[in-house]
């Protein structure tokens, strides 16, 4: 039984069909990757699933429930969260506080208790603090806990963003280019982390440009080109699909021209 299901999703921006009739499903513990050349509509698709954009047509189901165009904070409360291609970090908070903020749903309580530093509020804060440290250790950022997040390296911030997303114990995690801008070692770390998360039962939807990584860790791949799903299947099936090869070779020729 799939936990996340996308049915006929589409959106247009001023006549341009950015995404058109895309359907697929993700099961718990499964890693599904969305790949495609630049501008294929991957991030737009992510934005629709995570409630940032309102889809023009189609539906999104989470655990069988229609969640189409629901506000992101409500999706978070139902167990769906995401990371961002361009980092969205709480820059002026410490690394630890960033992760604690991820525990918002666990930690929040009556506001008067927060204002008066009531024992119940302090207890809540203390509990999530330990959880946050554990997550930081998991992404190997525990030493930077008290540093201001803005001072961290790009790769570290990518891991911090994942730790923050994990704080809300998601059932479905959308990762938008988690390895972008990371070096080989960092990529391998993120790679292992994602596999570990999937093994713990989280359904993972991944957008990633690093093809080696995608082929290595995905259970299932959805290929987009010009906003349309042109292929879908296991890594082996997809890599042998003539349409996929054409789409990628085409784009590589273009890049070669651009570089030349």
């Amino acid at each position: 039984m799939s936990i996340l299901e996308v049915k006929g999703l589409g959106i247009s921006f001023g006549g341009l069909r950015a995404v058109n009739d895309v359907s697929f499903a993700v099961k718990p513990g499964e890693i599904v990757s969305v790949i495609g050349p630049n501008g294929a509509g991957k991030t737009t698709l992510f934005n629709m699933i995570s409630g940032v954009y309102m889809p023009g047509v189609g539906q999104v189901f989470l655990e069988g429930q229609d969640i189409t165009a629901r506000a992101p904070y409500l999706l978070a409360r139902q167990g769906l969260t995401r990371t961002f291609q361009n980092l969205q970090i709480f820059q002026e908070m410490t690394v630890l506080e960033n992760v604690i903020a991820g525990f918002h749903l666990t930690e929040r309580g009556p506001i008067w208790a927060d204002l008066l530093s009531w024992p119940s509020a302090r207890k809540r804060a203390g509990e999530v603090r330990n959880g946050a440290y554990e997550l930081l250790t998991r992404v190997r950022l525990e030493k930077a806990a008290e540093e201001e997040a803005g001072n961290l390296s790009y790769g570290a911030l990518k891991r911090l963003e994942i730790a923050r997303a994990l704080a809300m114990s998601p059932k479905v995690l959308l990762l938008d280019e988690p390895a972008a801008g990371c070096n080989a070692v960092e990529t391998e770390e993120i790679d292992a982390l994602i596999a570990e998360l999937a093994a713990s039962g989280i359904a993972i939807l991944l957008v990633e440009h690093d093809m080696k990584m995608v082929m290595r860790i995905s259970n299932h791949i959805v290929v987009l080109d010009h906003g349309e799903k042109i292929a879908e299947g296991t890594p082996t099936e997809v890599s042998r699909n003539p349409d996929v090869i054409a789409a990628y070779l085409g784009s590589e020729e273009e890049t070669a021209h651009a570089d030349g």
Partner: peptide, 11 residues
Amino acid sequence: GSEVAAQTVGI
């Protein structure tokens, strides 16, 4: 810091 990120953690 980031409204969109705040939303993704359920704020």
